[in-house]
């Protein structure tokens, strides 16, 4: 019963992930269809990979008929950040927890599930993770399916709605539809903010780390040369640098992970 309680809590906390994934994977479904991937194959990609940037990049690899090695290398580079996340997550797991849970929990290490998992106080219950995955995986695969099947109908419907409301035709309904759906992805960023701000409020050190991370990320995104670095690598480079400096300046002493 305890397990069911944790699972239900995870499912509930996973609702924003479900909604955000539904929107993001809808745009993935549209892209997949445009790349010539069938609905079954698109859903299969989403169900077995559960990752955003890696899947979009994979469509390029498939469309250009690149080698299998190139596919493996692309995924390794883009998804390398999960390696850091899994390492951090390993410290949230109890050594008493049956080992096989780790093999299932590993599948659910996405940016969003990781974010929600680390915000849990104390050790992470595997059934809580399964609850999060039970919300995230259906959202991701269903959105993909809807994107493939209805991706082309949405612009038509939107165009008709616009004409009915304003009497004039919408200039570019396809672009408008994609923009509207993509804009829902802000839900996932909102979730990240809900995770990092409360601890930052309690600890000035964490607040400083959050602000510095955001400013350096902005610099990497906008400054010449630095902006050439891909988003995936930017995450890895900045995480290693900033977390290392923070670890040297403010080593964590006690069990609770509080800054001494």
């Amino acid at each position: 019963m305890q397990r069911f309680k944790f699972w239900k809590k995870g499912l509930k906390d996973g609702i924003p992930i479900f909604l955000g994934y539904l929107a993001v994977s809808f745009t993935f479904g549209i892209s997949a269809k445009n790349a010539g991937v069938s609905s079954l194959q698109s859903v299969l990609i989403s169900a077995t990979n559960l990752t955003s940037a890696g899947q979009f990049a994979a469509l390029n690899v498939i469309a250009t008929s690149a080698t299998y090695f190139e596919m493996a290398f692309t995924q390794l580079i883009i998804n390398l950040r999960y390696c850091l996340m899994s390492s951090a997550l390993s410290q949230k797991l109890s050594s008493k927890m049956p080992f096989w849970h780790r093999f299932i929990m590993a599948f659910g290490v996405t940016d969003e599930i990781f974010g929600v998992s680390v915000s849990v106080s104390g050790k992470l219950n595997p059934y809580y993770s399964y609850g999060l995955m039970s919300a995230a995986i259906p959202g991701w695969t269903l959105g993909t399916f809807l994107g493939v099947v209805f991706g082309n109908l949405l612009p038509i419907a939107l165009g008709q709605l616009f004409t009915a409301m304003f009497g004039t035709a919408l200039a570019n309904p396809t672009l408008a539809a994609q923009k509207i759906v993509a804009s829902l992805s802000i839900a996932l960023y909102g979730m990240f903010i809900a995770i990092i701000i409360p601890p930052a409020r309690k600890s000035k050190k964490i607040a400083g780390i959050v602000v510095i991370s955001m400013l350096l990320s902005l610099a990497f995104a906008k400054l010449p040369i630095l902006c050439q670095i891909s988003q995936g690598f930017r995450i890895i480079i900045l995480t290693i640098i900033i977390a290392s400096v923070a670890a040297i300046l403010f080593p964590v002493k006690n069990e609770e992970g509080e800054v001494a």
């Binding site: 950040r81 850091l84 996340m85 390492s87 951090a88 390993s90 410290q91 940016d111 990781f114 974010g115 680390v118 990240f192 995770i195 990092i196 601890p199 930052a200 964490i206 780390i209 959050v210 991370s213 955001m214 350096l216 990320s217 930017r234 995450i235 900045l238 995480t239 900033i242 977390a243 923070a246 670890a247 964590v252 992970g257």
Partner: peptide
Amino acid sequence: LYYVPYVTLSV
């Protein structure tokens, strides 16, 4: 590893 989530999510 304690600081990784804060940096990663912020970035």
